[in-house]
Design a protein around this nucleic acid. Structure first.
Length: 870
RNA sequence: GCCCGGGUGGUGAAAUUGGUAGACACAAGGGACUUAAAAUCCCUCGGCGCAAGCUGUACGGGUUCGAUUCCCGUCCCGGGCACCA
């Protein structure tokens, strides 16, 4: 064994051995419990960043730990390979997205391999491969047959200069990222998946996901947003130009506050609502306002923060209970895609309606009273929206009723008139999957002049995406590809055109976890092997996926289940949501639109005493920059590539450092200032092992008399095994496991281990440390093991066993408080009774200084402390 | 704006079920070894105080024998908001 720790050589040797022996290849084996550990697959953006290292190290620690615990483990890897960045790269470098993507995959695969993850690479998949996306298409057709996939109009961001649809990310301050042109909303046809059919189940099954973080379940439940309310209509006599009643003479709205119905003073409809369209005819001012509403962002965040504006239509509808005439306004904050595209407005008890009424001088009528509070129309007060304590006033026959009673009575009255009823409404909307983009999975449809839209027959799948296109930012290049576009209609055989829309990339990632089980099956999407491996026992990924990706995957899995493709109701049994790895990012907004990001080395930064960034300027010309602290990503030029770290210190140090920096779920601001310490720890471990081994290895301690010092060391060692197992398995918190090993090694280094018994304990300790640390630093652990136990392989070893005899303790230490303040500590026999403990505590010299007279009360917390209330 | 997290020394953090605040590290300072440097080892290290002790977990309140932990309010930072992935 060499004296010095040389990570490069050690890591190369271990990785070659693992590769040669195919040790991480997963084979179905019913004799063992299985453990399917999956980390979210990366987008192949070019290089790994520290967020990836964190994610995949967590997965690897859990995989290796469970392998040692006797599980048949599988940890696969693949590539979320379709998406916008490849098109952006194509625009910039004129390289086809396919080539760019495959090159990135090759490089990032090498990087992942250099980190030594226990991955079964034989299962690797890439979503841009026709072998994979064929099954996206196949599933889409099945969903079409079942009515889950359907067509309707969708609202998109339209760049009028580039004549192209923009992603939300490409709209900056309401302008196109390349052209700087004001973005318009445009309605175009698209395909949707009816995730709302599963809303009830998606919500209900959250309850069975008890090994998911509570925050994720909460976010999903809020997103699905089940609310019970009343859907009712304001009747009217408004007719269109053909003389027929618009919407059969009913303006439908939904409300969760039907108890405030007597306070309605106006209604607001979306700009696209038929009543708005009708009113705009012959009212140029209103037409202009509606046109203005149709511009601007489609994003919810923008909708919620923009200035609420409205304009009266001059139309009136009838209040269904009072018969009063209620004016109809167009509101820019009312969305046609939510519910019925119209809302009742009760300015007295809804904050947004209140602000709107004040702005446009509309009447405000109080209809809810909370005893002891005084209502005023001057300023909004939180309690105006109180559901708990209010009762109806100014509401005729409903006066005095509370929230629930009023809603029951009002819903019943509306139902009796045929004008409404209670209704459950969901916030969740169906999933629009059409993208007017090239680098994605083609939607397998054909448009025929005779037969209409015709599905591509199964035996003609996959519809392959041509891989040599180079997008230029002005629309989908497929539209110019006659070889792709032209086809024959499967029904009538006449010339027809292919659909050029591709699928949302969330489709790709909604089922990859299942495909890893049968990646080589060309005849079926999934097979029996999926029934062996599914569900995923442990899923690990960034908290940014808490809602969309995880919800879509849950939905897709349920559809697969209903098609008989899988048996599980939920795809991911246990979920660990990794905190984001943040880094500073600097950008400017150039006049031509968009955002331009700069690398930190291109920037001069001004910091305050707390090291917080106050401002930044560009080195080249001194112009000011906008600073953000945000997740590492290629597009923001703030990703830190682990390569330099690996080259300087080795993969084990990179892995150890990432795990030691913070617990997995916590957001982490990137800093490499403590990397050196992680490296030093491994070097120290190596040196301690070397010193022991150079005096000759011996059998590990089993039994026999030990000195008090060795006994104490063994107590700590076996406590460590328990502690680390608990941290890996139950708590999934690795920084504290590492700290415990460091603590043990500090004690180990101080102990006198020169006796025969000492050498045996040292052997036991070093073997144990190599084992418990191996999930985090597998290469150095493997090498140490080889020297400690020549001829055996660490990967064949089970998790070390705790020796109960080592954990026996006769005396325990208790802390003594007086009035909650620490005043001393006492040592008592481990089975001392309450009286004995109280007496010992009161006998303590320092404690006596603070206790004058008889104590009022003594609290004894077994095994922990005594608190004397004086 | 809405939903979900987070805020503890100079820094990353620990305190697992309401029970010793700051484990384990990084940085810094001091010392040993060395011709010197690197490496290594030892000591100090929240604030105030000579000490006893007092005080301290973003801020303001509350519950409790006891609160970093639970409750209410405020501020700041991050994630998500349906076409970034």
């Amino acid at each position: 064994m060499q004296e010095h720790y040389t990570p490069a050589a050690i890591e190369a040797a271990a990785q070659q051995k693992w590769e040669k022996n195919q040790v991480f290849k997963a084979i179905e084996d019913t004799s063992k419990p299985k453990y399917y550990c999956l980390s979210m697959f990366p987008y192949p953006s070019g290089k790994l960043h520290m967020g990836h290292v964190r994610n995949y190290t967590i997965g690897d620690v859990l995989t290796r730990y469970h392998r040692m615990q006797g599980y048949n483990v599988m940890q696969p890897m693949g590539w979320d390979a379709f998406g916008l960045p490849a098109e952006n790269a194509a625009i910039q470098n004129k390289v086809p997205p396919a080539k760019w993507t495959w090159d990135n995959i090759d490089y990032m695969r090498l990087q992942l391999k250099s980190l030594g993850f226990a991955i079964d690479w034989s299962r690797e998949l890439a979503t841009c491969s026709p072998d994979y996306y064929k099954w996206n298409q196949w599933m889409f057709l099945r969903m079409l047959e079942k009515g889950i996939a359907y067509k309707k109009t969708q609202v998109v961001n339209w760049d009028p200069v580039d004549q192209t649809v923009l992603a939300n990310e490409q709209v900056i301050d309401g302008r196109g990222w390349r052209t700087g042109a004001l973005v318009e909303k445009r309605e175009i046809p698209g395909y949707y998946l009816a995730i709302t059919h599963y809303a009830d189940e998606l919500l209900g099954d959250l309850e069975q996901l008890e090994n998911w973080p509570e925050r994720v379940r909460l976010m999903q439940a809020n997103w699905i947003g089940k609310s019970t309310g009343v859907r009712f209509a304001f009747p009217h006599e408004i007719k269109d130009e053909t003389g027929s009643l618009i919407d059969d003479g009913k303006l439908w709205v939904f409300t969760t506050r039907a108890d405030t119905i007597m306070g309605v003073t106006f209604c607001a409809v979306a700009a696209e609502h038929p009543l708005a369209t009708h009113a705009a005819q012959g009212n140029p001012e209103l037409a202009a306002f509606i046109e203005e509403c149709k511009h601007g962002s489609v994003m919810e965040a923008d909708m919620a923060t923009m200035e609420k504006k409205g304009m009266p239509t001059g139309l009136f509808v009838t209040h269904p209970l009072t018969g009063a005439q209620v004016p109809v306004w167009v509101g820019n904050y009312v969305l046609m895609s939510y519910g019925d595209g119209a809302v009742m407005a009760v300015p007295s008890h809804d904050e947004r309606d209140f602000a709107f009424a004040k702005k446009y001088d509309l009447p405000i009528v109080q209809v809810i009273d909370v005893p002891g509070k005084t209502y005023s129309t001057e300023a909004w007060e939180e309690w105006y929206a109180d559901k708990e304590n209010g009762v109806c006033i100014n509401s005729g026959k409903y006066d005095g009723m509370n929230y629930a009673a009023a809603i029951d009575a009002i819903a019943a009255d509306l139902a009796a008139k045929g004008l409404g009823d209670k209704k459950v409404q969901w916030r969740l909307r169906d999933w629009g999957v059409s993208r007017q983009r090239y680098w994605g999975c083609p939607i397998p449809l054909i448009h025929c002049d005779c037969c209409g839209t015709v599905p591509v027959p199964d035996d003609q799948l996959p519809v392959k995406l041509p891989e040599d296109c180079v997008p230029d930012g002005s629309g989908n290049p497929l539209l110019k590809r006659d070889d792709f576009l032209n086809c024959t209609c499967p029904q009538c055989g006449k010339p027809a055109k292919r659909e050029t829309d591709t699928m949302d990339t969330f489709v790709d990632s909604s089922w990859y976890y299942a495909r890893y089980c049968s990646p080589d099956n060309h005849d079926a999407m999934l097979d029996e092997r999926a029934n062996y491996w599914m569900s995923v026992d442990q899923y690990i990924g960034g908290i940014e996926h808490a809602i969309l990706h995880l919800l879509y995957s849950r939905f897709w899995n349920k559809v697969m289940r209903d098609l008989g493709l899988t048996k599980v109701d939920e795809p991911f049994s246990r979920l660990l949501t990794q905190g984001m790895v943040l880094n500073d990012a600097f950008h400017q907004k150039p006049p031509e639109g968009g955002k331009k990001y700069y690398w930190e080395h291109e920037v001069d930064v001004v910091r305050n005493e707390q090291n917080r960034i106050l401002g930044a300027t560009l080195k080249s010309d001194g112009s000011p920059l906008i600073h953000e602290l945000t997740t590492m990503s290629k597009s923001k030029n703030n990703g830190v590539d682990p390569q330099a770290l690996i080259e300087q210190y080795g993969a084990d140090t990179a892995r150890l450092f990432m795990m030691f920096a913070a617990p997995p779920e916590m957001t982490l601001e990137w800093s490499d200032s403590a990397v050196e310490g992680s490296f030093r720890f491994l070097r120290r471990l190596w040196k301690l092992a070397h010193d022991h081994i150079s005096t000759g290895i011996v059998p590990a301690y089993k039994e026999g008399e030990l000195s008090a010092e060795l006994k104490a060391l063994r107590f700590q060692l076996h406590h460590l095994i328990q502690k680390v197992a608990d941290d890996y398995g139950r708590r999934q918190q690795f920084n504290t496991a590492i700290a415990a090993v460091m603590e043990f090694l500090n004690a180990f280094a101080k102990a006198d281990l020169t006796s025969d018994a000492g050498k045996a304990v040292a052997q036991e300790a070093l073997e144990t440390v190599a084992l418990v640390l191996s999930p985090i630093v597998p290469h150095v652990a493997d090498a140490l093991w080889t020297h400690l136990k020549p001829g055996s392989d660490l990967l064949d070893q089970p998790w070390p066993k705790v020796d109960p005899a080592a954990l026996v303790q006769d005396e325990i230490e208790l802390v003594v408080q007086v009035n909650g303040k620490l005043r001393g500590s006492i040592k008592v026999s481990k089975d001392a009774g309450k009286e004995a403990i109280e007496a010992a505590a009161l006998a303590d010299e320092n404690v006596q200084k603070f206790v004058t007279g008889a104590p009022k009360k003594i609290i004894v917390v077994p095994g922990r402390l005594v608190n004397i209330v004086a």
